[in-house]
Amino acid sequence: MTNTSKAPVNMLKAERVEYILNELERLYPETPVPLDHKDPYTLLVAVLLSAQCTDERVNQITPALWQLADNPFDMAKQSVEDIKAIIRPCGLSPQKSKAIQGLSQILVDKYNGEVPQDMALLEELPGVGHKTASVVVAQSFGIPAFPVDTHIHRLAQRWGLTSGKNVTQTEKDLKRLFPKEKWNKLHLQIIFYGREYCTARGCQGTTCPICTTCYPARKHPKKIAKA
């Protein structure tokens, strides 16, 4: 008897984009910001602290930090050592404490204590890179941005949305593929999905529902270009 069953066929890119959008919206219709904060300033500091640290750890540390100072006027008056003593569990505390004290002073001196909404101005602040600035403008001010970290970079490669060798190229590719009005929500949806289904070692492009639906013919782990 002849076997007439067809081999699985991988989705085309346009099909993957539509499927991913619909699936993530189904799974995560609401996208609360994972970092606890009350305004643009506390979000800025929390995102800065999250570098090479989990959101859970940051959320454990920030209540004590906000008790010390929860606005740039009060934070600028604190010593770097006092800030460092509180944030030490987040890692990189020498650099982060200097950055927090320094950016707070700049916000007081140049912006009357307000966090600027301009990406370029944010990136001039100590310790604030492109990804941190993108998160702040997206989540505090509703300005379309697509913050890409190593986790989003990994999933975008597994899903065939980019072949970029760094987060900068991946961000450009994702912005081209997805509607601008979806960016702010989508970057959080991808993070949530990665934590729940498509973990660094738990999927490798061959296990989770999105990977197996987009690439049913994939037989080997997807090699990821390092960000």
Rank of each mutant, 00 (worst) to 15 (best):
A69G: 05
R176D: 15
I143E: 10
W66E: 13
T2E: 15
A145Q: 02
F192G: 06
D173N: 08
Q95E: 13
V33E: 12
N10D: 15
V58D: 08
P40L: 04
E123F: 00
D118F: 01
K185T: 13
C214N: 05
S50T: 05
G91W: 13
F141A: 10
V17Y: 15
K77Q: 12
K223R: 14
K222D: 03
I224K: 06
D149S: 01
L49K: 05
T132E: 04
Y111F: 15
T199A: 07
P40I: 07
K165T: 07
I86R: 11
D118P: 00
R16G: 12
G164S: 08
I86S: 10
H220I: 10
D109T: 15
K131P: 01
E171H: 00
P72E: 01
V167D: 07
Y197L: 06
G164Q: 03
A138Q: 02
E123V: 03
L177I: 06
V47M: 00
F73L: 02
R218E: 14
L21H: 11
K6M: 12
E124L: 00
E181N: 08
M119N: 03
E81S: 06
L43D: 07
Y28N: 10
D149Y: 01
E196V: 04
N71D: 12
F146C: 00
A200P: 01
A46C: 07
C198Y: 11
G164H: 03
R88E: 11
I210N: 12
P126Q: 08
R195T: 11
Y111W: 15
C211E: 11
E123H: 01
Q67P: 01
K180P: 00
S5Y: 13
G113Q: 07
N10I: 09
